Computed example of a mutant assay.
Amino acid sequence: MRSARIAASAAALGVLVYPLAAARAASASPSPAASTTLVSQCESFGPWGVYAKAVTIRSKASTNSTALGVLYRSHRFTVHKTKGNWRYITDRSTGVKGWVSAKYVHREIEDCR
């Protein structure tokens, strides 16, 4: 008796769910224009950010070079160029220009959902 109820419930559920699943599958294939628009929206990058609490700004792209200042997480900065694992930046909060390790700075990607 119990197995008959389970079978009847499963059949009834299948009748209800199948039309919904079929409708989603039909609408899930986007047109070429829609996918192109989505890709261009997802490629927009946000501002640069700092992974650590603070990063040392250096005169050359080397840990042995002179420290010029400190780039804090709250500071805004502009990246001008990249050399290996280093980025040449301008700290817009203090005006200091120099090199920071690329390990500690990143470019945020805008959420495209």
Rank of each mutant, 00 (worst) to 15 (best):
S9H: 09
A10I: 09
A11K: 14
A11P: 00
G14V: 04
V15C: 14
V15Y: 07
V17E: 06
A22K: 11
A26R: 12
P30N: 07
P30I: 08
S31Y: 00
A34G: 06
A34R: 05
S35I: 14
S35E: 09
V39Q: 07
V39W: 00
Q41T: 09
E43M: 10
S44R: 12
G46C: 07
G46S: 10
P47D: 15
P47L: 15
G49M: 10
V50M: 06
Y51E: 11
K53L: 12
V55G: 05
I57T: 06
R58V: 05
R58E: 02
S59W: 01
K60M: 10
S62Y: 00
N64M: 13
N64F: 08
A67N: 12
A67H: 07
L68R: 04
G69L: 01
G69H: 04
L71A: 03
R73Q: 09
S74T: 14
R76C: 13
H80K: 15
K81C: 12
T82M: 09
T82I: 12
T82C: 01
T82G: 06
G84F: 02
N85E: 13
N85T: 13
N85I: 07
W86Q: 01
W86L: 06
W86V: 04
Y88G: 09
I89F: 04
T90G: 05
S93D: 15
T94S: 10
V96E: 08
G98I: 00
S101T: 06
S101H: 00
A102R: 02
A102F: 00
K103S: 15
K103A: 14
